[in-house]
Design a protein around this nucleic acid. Sequence first.
DNA 1: GTGTCGTCCTTTTTT
DNA 2: AGGACGACAC
Length: 800
Amino acid sequence: MIDQLNPEQKAAVTLPPQHALVLAGAGSGKTRVLTTRMAWLIQTGQASPYGLLAVTFTNKSAREMLARLSALLPLDTRGMWVGTFHGLCNRLLRAHHRDANLPQTFQILDTADQLSAIKRLIKGAGIDDEKYPPRDVQRFINGAKEEGLRPDVVPANDPHHRRLVEIYSMYQAQCEREGVVDFPELLLRAYELLQRNGPVREHYQRRFRHILVDEFQDTNTLQYKWLRLLAGGGACVFAVGDDDQSIYAFRGANVGNMSEFERDYAHGAVIRLEQNYRSHGHILDAANALIAHNSARLGKNLWTAQGEGEPVRVIEQPSDLMEAQWVVDEIKALINDGSLRHEIAVLYRSNAQSRVIEHTLFSSGVPYKVYGGLRFFERQEIKHALAYLRLMDNPHDDTSWLRVVNFPTRGIGARTLEQLADLARERGTSLYGAVPYMSGKGGSNLAKFAELIAGMAHEAQILSLPELIEHVIHHSGLRAHYQAEKEGAERLENLQELINAATVFCVEENIEGLPAGLLIERALSTAAVSNVSGAGIPASQTSGSQAFDSQTSDSQTPDSQELGSQAVLGTAAALPEVELAMSPLAAFLSHASLEAGDNQAQPGQDAVQLMTVHAAKGLEFDSVFITGLEEGLFPHENSLLEAAGLEEERRLMYVAITRARERLYLTLSQSRMLHGQTRYAMRSRFLDEIPEQHLKWLSPREASTLPSEAWGQANWRRSDAYGRPPTGGIAPRAPRSVTSGVTVGDKHFRIGQSVSHAKFGEGIIIGLSGAGQDSQAQIQFRDVGTKTLALGVAKLEINP
DNA sequence: GTGTCGTCCTTTTTT
DNA sequence: AGGACGACAC
């Protein structure tokens, strides 16, 4: 198992029980080390499979971890706590829903559901949505939750923030009332459960002796606190990550957690995995040189035993169209030479860039696949069907209610729903709860809808999950609706696919044929706890006051799939713990929320792979094209506002480069259609941060890069136009000519042009967009920073 | 209740 | 440019 590991990998895998931070560079065998560590702990008897907790960010990597683990050891991985942060927290909350003060059937709002819940709240409370845009409110609430902050402790020092906190508080009350939980709430609730409930906390602290974390650099503050709490009983934390690949700060990830770890888990080991098994020398050296420009690093230098390989190709084209055409021509040549299509990836910084590449690939007849679109469970028709299913489980879920109460249309208009909402507010009930108080035609239509839901809920006690979904699609009228619609064929197919997904789900969960609404309890042995610590906690304590409804207790077929764990551990006196007490329907709904469907690239498809750089993280390809290497695009202009932004962009570029095994192409364009305007930009500073010896320019350099060789490479690399050294930040560098520009009146403006402004003084044009009177220029002034000026308005002098 | 027109926005994204 | 969403009219 460990024979094929290099010394550092082996050291990490066989570390004695203690905390460890593994700094695993790109392509250094990170996942392999993590899974082998788990297998080694189990095989050497240091841990039982049920005494391990392994946590990741995506379902895909959780699945991969389990798959690799079962390949290493003959092991029944079911019942093991390996999953995403959200998945594991969901599991925890289901098992202890009473202690967590949640209804048994609590449902999970995905990002879109949450947004619509917030919109509804804002409308209902008469809050000005201009002043408090739902998106901002959502960001505020989630940001607070991800810091572990409830409304009563969120700092708010101005009226605007105090109002936001109020809205947060109202939103929270609404979620409680409706029995729904958003994504960050899953984590926060689970954290609070462990924090406040001593028996539950101690139970899990004793149980999990080893906690393994993947992609540790992506953890947010709350996840870090959650891990610390869980490890508080003396568990060993094995955290694997790469600070250089931290690219999710914008959604709350805190790279600082890595240095925090070194402080909080003192005496832990720090192991660096620096041998890269993926990329050829030039590619790796380019990545190393680039990332060396970042200041806040834990430090790491990747090396490879493979040869230098090919230099990195760089090409500049006059337009984005020609850039795309060049990429496609090169792809065709690669395929001609025997490359596999799915071993070729085209990466870009932002999704908007994919269009022109897609178009060009399409015209050339090259099969391709774009990643990052709408996912299966996010499709309109699927969300509609799921809303019906949710209502069966919990008719008080107003979000789902409003989604389908009039879809397909059944004569329930806005007016009626307003009345219903008023009644519900007066009586403090859900919309469903207010239906009996409605009168008139609207009222009877609503009553019919309520009956429809109740009837479906009744069927749930009889039909299996796939049968139930079939029933719902038919009796809700969804099928008829989409059959009548011109473009409905694909939606009908997706609905059919939903039934298939449910069938597969039931097989995987071993609940085929059971009524969808039947509550199933599964006991999971707590033997792992007793085994290690010698002391378990009585189930009556751990599962708190969970006296399950009488209908659920006796009438069940006890699920015995976990019995195997007892055999493995040889402990007969296992204390039963309620692992899950939910129906196939509820389980499927959780599954749908937590796993919205595959969006990530899968190998094996014979198509060129198109995706953003973010989406490419964790993947690798023989040949990689990184496109749009222009200032303002990559690094993205929005990132330049904060100092940390540029470093994150650089890490992003680092991730992009290290995706390539054998061939790497960097492409850029002098002009680009963006937001309906032609924009001109300078080449990305990242190109200048890669040493010349690793690059091979395919376009004539004089066309783009240097006004003349007289500047001298060393010269412009070391100083900007004003002779200041490039100290990072956004200092301009030497101007260089481009073939095109913008003409306004009698003046022609080009990138790199030196200009003077009466008020701002002397500056250099670093970006141009638009044409004629409407065009704008980004100008880096010597004294007052970067400004964007309308060329038709600003009086600019062109300096000689 | 449905269709059409205007307005707005546009970095990256998992759960 | 292009898509998404909301307001307004039939």
